[in-house]
C-alpha cells in the first residue's frame, strides 16, 4: 500500500469520490457525491440527522457498500476485491460514536490486537508502540484496565489510540463526541485538534462547530443525501450561501 501511495506521489488525493450513489432498498441515501480530500486536509461534515453523512464516511472504508460511482482511497480503487478492501481498511482509521472498544480485552490489548494479528508485529513491539500512542492521548496509566472501567471520554481517547496504532494515513471520525457527557467532550476534542495539527488527513462527522472553526480546512454541509455546500470555515459560518445551510446553522448555533 505505502509503496503504491508513494509512487502515486503527493499530488494524488487521499480520498476521491466520484458520482457515488447508494440506496437502502428504495431509499436514496447518497446522491451523486463528488468529493476530493487532499493529503493533510481536515474536513468537517455536518448536516441534519439522516442526511447521509455517516453513510458517506462509512463507504470510504467499505463498512457500507456503494452501488454506483467510484471511490479511490490512497490511489487504490475500492472494488469488490476482498484483498483491496482489507488493504484500504488497514490504511484508514475509524473512530465510532459509541467507541466500540472490545470489552473482553484490556486497553493495551485493544491497541495491540490489530498490529499483532493484521500487521503481524511481535508483541513487544506492538505494546511499546501502543504505550506511545496511549501516552499521546494521555491515558497510558489506564493501560491495564478494561474499557468498562473507564469513563466515556477516556474510552473514546483509547479508541483514537487504537486506530493510530495501525499508522493510518486517513482518520474517519463518526460523531466521536455525541455519546459523551458535556464535561468529557473537551478532552476528546483536544486530542483531535493535536492530531490535526500534526498533519493527519481527517474526515469528521461532527456538530462541534468550534472544532470546525479552529481546525477544518473545509466544511461540508449535507442534506437529504447530497452535498449542499462546501466551503472554508470562515465563509461557511459567516456567509452561508444556501438557505438550508442557513436554517441548519441558525438551529444549531441559535441558542
Amino acid at each position: 500500500m505505502t509503496e503504491q501511495a508513494t509512487k502515486a506521489g503527493n499530488e494524488t488525493p487521499m480520498v476521491e469520490m466520484r458520482g457515488v450513489n447508494k440506496w437502502y432498498g428504495d431509499f436514496h441515501v447518497l446522491r451523486d457525491i463528488d468529493l476530493e480530500v487532499k493529503r493533510g486536509e481536515r474536513i468537517v461534515i455536518c448536516g441534519p440527522s439522516g442526511s447521509g453523512k455517516s453513510t458517506l464516511i462509512r463507504c470510504i472504508n467499505h463498512l457500507e457498500e456503494h452501488q454506483a460511482g467510484e471511490i479511490v482511497v490512497g490511489g487504490i480503487p475500492l472494488t469488490q476485491d476482498v484483498k483491496r478492501i482489507e488493504q484500504i481498511r488497514r490504511n484508514v482509521g475509524m473512530v465510532f460514536q459509541h467507541f466500540n472498544l472490545f470489552p473482553h480485552l484490556t486497553v493495551l490489548e485493544n491497541c495491540c490486537l490489530a498490529p499483532m494479528w493484521v500487521q503481524k508485529k511481535p508483541r513487544r513491539e506492538a505494546e511499546e508502540q501502543a504505550m506511545r500512542y496511549l501516552e499521546r492521548v494521555r491515558i497510558a496509566e489506564q493501560a491495564r484496565k478494561y474499557p468498562g472501567q473507564l469513563s466515556g471520554g477516556q474510552q473514546q481517547r483509547v479508541a483514537i489510540a487504537r486506530s493510530l496504532c495501525m499508522h493510518p494515513e486517513v482518520m474517519l471520525f463518526d460523531e466521536p463526541t455525541s455519546a459523551l457527557d458535556p464535561e468529557m467532550i473537551k478532552e476528546v476534542l483536544d486530542v483531535m485538534v493535536e492530531l490535526a495539527n500534526e498533519g493527519m488527513t481527517m474526515l469528521c462527522v461532527t456538530h462541534e462547530m468550534g472544532f470546525a472553526k479552529t481546525v477544518a480546512d473545509r466544511v461540508i454541509f449535507m442534506d437529504q443525501g447530497q452535498i449542499i455546500e462546501e466551503n472554508a470555515p470562515e465563509p461557511f459560518f459567516n456567509n452561508p450561501q444556501s438557505e438550508r445551510t442557513q436554517l441548519f446553522l441558525s438551529q444549531i448555533l441559535g441558542h
Binding site: 463498512l63 475509524m94 465510532f96 466500540n100 472498544l101 490489530a114 493484521v118 487504537r162
Partner: peptide, 20 residues
C-alpha cells in the same frame, strides 16, 4: 459495532469472529 470496529482495523471475517 464490535464487528464494524474490527473490520475498520482491517481484520478479515475469521479474525473478526475468532478474536472479537
Amino acid at each position: 459495532g464490535q464487528e464494524e470496529a474490527a473490520a475498520a482495523l482491517g481484520m478479515g471475517y475469521w479474525m473478526r469472529m475468532g478474536l472479537i
